[in-house]
Write a protein that binds this DNA or RNA. Structure first.
Lengths: 268, 268
DNA sequence: CAATATTCTTGATGCAGATCAAGAAACGAT
DNA sequence: ATCGTTTCTTGATCTGCATCAAGAATATTG
């Protein structure tokens, strides 16, 4: 608790001046400023247009969506939204990495990590209900925020956009189901083994993967303690895995796969 | 393994002749038979029309949806779909109760239980991907099946239907997130305590609730073994709960609530 | 109703994983 | 670079939950 902010939720080198919802109007960049009548198409517009969610959207719908939208850069480890708050904006990760997490009593768990072009939290926006998860940046990140009301408006009159939305939502749902299956059907060691294989697939490497996240985050995501994660890595030596800092060396993919038994319907 | 079926996945009094996908054409009731030119609006049509999912749908869209739809009655404990299969039909529970469950290696877990008007599995239908979960009836149940292709077709041209779909999907997603939070943030005893409080709310009772499901199903749903569920019930005596068969007597709601600490963002 | 499964319960035991504690390594700030 | 902080690791211990086993209660079948 060494920093001077008045609202510090957690001690840590990463917590900066702002620990609660980061919403200083002076740091917001409004994309489209009709009152000024110019600057209506800065480079941010192209950036948003490039997002798959808007790929099939026609120009009129797109204009409606970005009319009230914001783009903002956030420093690392900034809490963007807090669970329970009303869903005023749909958020889209433009660059960087965002963690979704959740609390109950004094406990906290990482739900997922979002990279470029990922949306959060669409379901709350659609249903006009409070967020179920909190979000914080892990790296320096750029986030697009589109007013929920505009999403709902365009959804009704643009069936292509509706299709994109429902497709994205279905993907999120399926990811959540897979996550539940992962936790309920596997031991923590099995989850770690499959996590490493997933990294290997994502990073398209053969015998070496990099843990891009802090180990304590990985532990929380996998539903275990940091201590146990250390021990789990040690146990995986028996299945052809060695760890050196952030690097994981896969010495025997066959053995690891035989142990992990990855499944398309959980890891696919 | 006492019954004579050739495809028995599990011994049990509830497993009948058919243990695999139950799809005997002779027992299907096609709703709308255009080739005959009559019987196009039996009582089943009204039944489907009454489902909230179709409430806002116009008549033309509705006609398209039911053109290829089926209604079928299933005996208890019949496996309706198996995870990994292609999502040919959207399923809707008309009456009865359906369990969604999932397997990995030799393990199985209950994901959720569906009552009247619930849909499954919408996301697979939308994305045209394989089911992530299997489904079986728990009671005698009537199930409506709408071809996935028709869902996708009508979705595109009827924005009211699209809205219903996306709303339903968002609800499913949020339920799944809540379930993940429940499992990752709570101990099994806390999950059971909150489960009892949920039943109390659903059944609108004060000091007594009925466990409508087999205890082994409840145990699997809550992520614990049947043995442990028994012991957990015993432990809850300390928090004002007593069990007699299928009946749970809540002797001290305040104590139970104080222990369970129900949260809107998990149990709401 | 009796016979037979199956589920539920209870006890004994074992293991996975949490907690507590302390040292090592890595990181950030000055 | 140095200091202070945080994370990571390793060991010791403890707890929650699973497993194994067997009897009691309950449901199903003939």
């Amino acid at each position: 608790m060494s920093c001077g902010s008045k609202v510090v939720v957690k001690a840590g080198r990463y917590i900066y001046l702002v620990a609660q919802r980061y919403f200083d109007a002076s740091r917001l960049i409004k994309i489209n400023r009709p009152s000024l009548g110019e600057d209506v198409a800065p480079k941010h517009l192209e950036e948003i247009r490039a997002n798959p969610l808007f790929a099939a959207t026609n120009d009129e719908s797109f204009a409606t969506l970005v009319r009230g939208a914001y783009v903002q850069n956030f420093p690392p480890h900034t809490e963007l939204i807090t669970e329970g708050e009303p869903a005023d904006f749909l958020h889209i990760v433009s660059t960087g990495c965002v963690e979704l997490f959740s609390n109950w009593r004094d406990r906290e768990t990482s739900m997922t990590f979002l990279g470029e072009n990922a949306t959060f939290i669409l379901a709350a926006t659609i249903k006009d209900r409070p967020y179920l998860m909190s979000a914080r940046t892990l790296n320096k990140s750029r986030v697009i925020m589109v007013p929920s009301q505009d999403i709902r408006t365009v959804f009704e009159r643009d069936s292509d956009f509706a299709k994109s939305i429902v497709f994205e939502l279905a993907s999120c749902y399926r990811a959540s189901v897979k996550s539940t299956k992962n936790i309920k059907l596997r031991t923590s060691l099995e989850r770690l083994a499959n996590y490493i294989l997933q990294l290997r697939r994502d990073q398209e490497t053969n015998d070496q993967v990099v843990l891009e996240l802090e180990k304590r985050k990985i532990a929380s995501f996998l539903g275990m303690t940091p201590e146990n994660l250390s021990r789990a890595f040690a146990s995986l030596k028996n299945h052809g895995v060695e760890v050196d800092g952030q690097t994981v060396i896969i010495k025997d993919v066959v053995a690891l796969t035989a142990f992990a038994k990855p499944a398309l319907l959980i890891d696919g």
